[in-house]
Design a protein around this nucleic acid. Sequence first.
RNA 1: CGGGGUAUAGCGCAGUCCGGUAGCGCAUCUGGUUUGGGACCAGAGGGUCGUAGGUUCGAAUCCUGCUACCCCGACCA
Length: 491
Amino acid sequence: MGKFLTTREENYSQWYNELVIKADLAENSAVRGCMVIKPYGYAIWEKMQAALDTMFKETGHVNAYFPLFIPKSFFSKEASHVEGFAKECAVVTHYRLKNKADGSGIEVDPEAKLEEELIVRPTSETIIWSTYKNWIQSYRDLPILINQWANVVRWEMRTRLFLRTAEFLWQEGHTAHATQEEAIEETIRMINVYAEFAEKFMAVPVIKGVKTENERFAGAIDTYTIEAMMQDGKALQSGTSHFLGQNFAKAFDVKFNSKESKLDYVWATSWGVSTRLMGALVMSHSDDHGLVLPPKLAPNQVVIVPIYKGDDQYEIMREAGNKIKNQLKAAGISVLFDDRDTHKPGWKFAEYELKGVPVRLAFGARDMENDTIEIARRDTLEKQTISQENIVETVKQLLEDIQENIYQKALKLREQKTYAVDTWEEFTDIIENKGGFVYAHWDGTTETENKIKEATKATIRCIPVNNPLENGTCIFSGKPSNQRVLFAKAY
RNA sequence: CGGGGUAUAGCGCAGUCCGGUAGCGCAUCUGGUUUGGGACCAGAGGGUCGUAGGUUCGAAUCCUGCUACCCCGACCA
């Protein structure tokens, strides 16, 4: 087996970078910090979108679309929101170009300056709440449960394909409610939707929890998060759901008449997941041979590779291959029959391993004689020769096994790399030498949180939901604490 | 945004120190033999050496600016 990838052990970060490019998921573009998502990568994103969109619809949401540009003045209306995003906003200042006088190209026409500059959305709370103001007068107008699929721009200093890019694709849900209880319920409902999606579709186990004040979304009262562990033990924040209280309603003066004929501000939530999930997917399951995709999100669940000698056999194999392909397709399995004569079987094997196709079927003259077929699973790289008779059932079962197996494997790894510690020495030892999730006591102050971050680069990923209460002392300050929180280095 | 590194054919690299007009492997194309884990032989095409200036008779090579990428920090989904 030739070596095409840096191994995870050699250099995890380089392994990831190479894998994303070699598996044809994405590449860097001519624009700094912005990526091109290639067809194979986009196909996975489309599968994620389809599953999530269905879940959003099932929970009563509808899709809409709001503008890419946000008037600068909107931004300044919610104080903490501005502060959070101001440092990474792209700004449109002009609306026209013109030819340079000396004919050496084009330049921004200084006479075409915008009256009010426009921000390229880093998130859409402000434009949406300025719109909701017009839509909401009465409790009868509530709730509003809207999602949008969009791109956003955050001018990042250091970027990495999928994990952090200046422009990325995401969905953002923005809901408006008559009561605080209902908004909190919605916030929790959506973090649960994200957790279910991560675990059932991506096969990525996640920890649900609440962010500390320090890590909270700019403008939120509470931020719920799902945190996944990557194979190197680092955490990846994979989705967030925010209870925004009445902050945006107050900033944009969105009031409604309640049943009791009382004028009150509207309660809000927002929630989102992004193409960063692609990074989570890659880093959770893949190995030194390439991607390992969960069957539920793989663009092709099965690839069929024919093995033949000469044109006569080729024709026979094509016919046989198409027959198998159609059987599988009829059972709702997505199949690629790679009957290209331009690449050899061995080349194709390596290629589809790199691309993470869950199941590979290969057959040649020997199989034709015996009515057998070789079946190989990507997650364990095991292969065996089976009878063609129950091929559909066998493949179906195997796809389910793979989906379950990679989830269990990821869960097991997380359990192995999760620790509970009581002393600063143990804490720093694990964070610096072993890597992983560490449950430890914390005194609840931002000051301590920041000092721990400074000393170790570990941050509080979340305070898990249903976190058991337990008396202890803060690992850093020694002050009393009544629960452990989840620490880790994060992407 | 600070420190370090890199940029030569589609990809990976040598050549740069010591200036003389560009080479290797893979990939591509043609023909043939092949096909159960990235085939082999023969031939062919492809580069104004990241970019803009400068020094020089002459620059991939020396000097300066700019850009992009990688690593390490600060910031963040």
